[in-house]
Design a protein around this nucleic acid. Sequence first.
DNA 1: GTCTATAATGGGATAGAC
DNA 2: GTCTATCCCATTATAGAC
Lengths: 198, 198
Amino acid sequence: MARTQGSHALTTGPKLREAALRLFAQKGYAAVSMRQIAAEVGVQVGALYNYTEDKQSLLFDLLQSHMQDLMAAWQVAQAGLMTPSQRLEAFTRFHIRYHLTRTDAVFISYMELRNLTPENFAKIETLRRAYEAQLQSILTEGQASGDFDLHDSKITALAVIAMLNGVLTWFRSDGRLSLDRVEGIYWDMVRRAVGCAP
Amino acid sequence: MARTQGSHALTTGPKLREAALRLFAQKGYAAVSMRQIAAEVGVQVGALYNYTEDKQSLLFDLLQSHMQDLMAAWQVAQAGLMTPSQRLEAFTRFHIRYHLTRTDAVFISYMELRNLTPENFAKIETLRRAYEAQLQSILTEGQASGDFDLHDSKITALAVIAMLNGVLTWFRSDGRLSLDRVEGIYWDMVRRAVGCAP
DNA sequence: GTCTATAATGGGATAGAC
DNA sequence: GTCTATCCCATTATAGAC
């Protein structure tokens, strides 16, 4: 028979983060109350404050973890790839695949930036820029080697990421197109947009 | 000497809409109070309810007007254009230019959809899909005529719009690149992404 | 049309018992 | 570590005076 009181330190922390991530993505940070989160976790509101300093820290920690995990995963995914073309295809497919498995985190990473304190906002922005710089360096390299033909590596990097993020708004795994097919279509569009021969 | 009471019917309505648009874009619908809006307008909170049924209607009216204005402006912009290539270039430049002058409305049109009631959400979605369909029909037409070479007109339309929307996050009129130059760079990327010869 | 005052509800966060 | 109870403050929306 389930306890209704007592210690659940091993599960409450992760459950808090999961519930907050889901609710923030669904309803927005400002529209979600600590009471709602507590109800999802299955504790009373007071208990949450054993795991987070306040609501703001909760949002910040979720965004920071997401960006750090993203950077780490990309470092692994791109290891050993040599040519700009290989690396660009890898980035395209990685970005789509990785983000599609974490749509909630991606969503709040774009939508809830304005609900961060200025200090926290600056930290997340730094991480986000570092990720964008990864793509930009691929483009610059390909431009220098003559593999790519593009006007401006910074703008192109932002345009490519914006285009890839668009996938998240409509892709459904039970939809008309498989993930692999979608990756292929986007890779073809990216490839041509940067002037890279097939 | 300024009146602090009395009728301001001719200015309060528009000022309410302007203030709400700006504040919703800055802080998010849920994070903005009717008191804050009233302070911006320069009236007490009770007076706002002469101009809007409630906060939800305020958001819905802003989004609906934005989408209706957008569609009307595009109808004008594309009138008389014949070839798929001309129409696609017109769409690209129109979308960038039009949205850059209304960043607040664009922002809330994407961010605050989840704060609409289901009924209101459905209405805005219908308008948004109609706009996307404009681009899709250009792509389908260009595909049929052989002017374009692309895999899927629906996905391509969504990808192009997502890419163009990316401009809004970084463009500054006093920045490194002029609006005309930016339009040109994006048109080149769009053109190549859809397999359209120069 | 706008004001002031108020109703009714819910918010984040904390104290102290267990 | 969690609970209950509570503080204090903000919220949307309305009523009635001017």
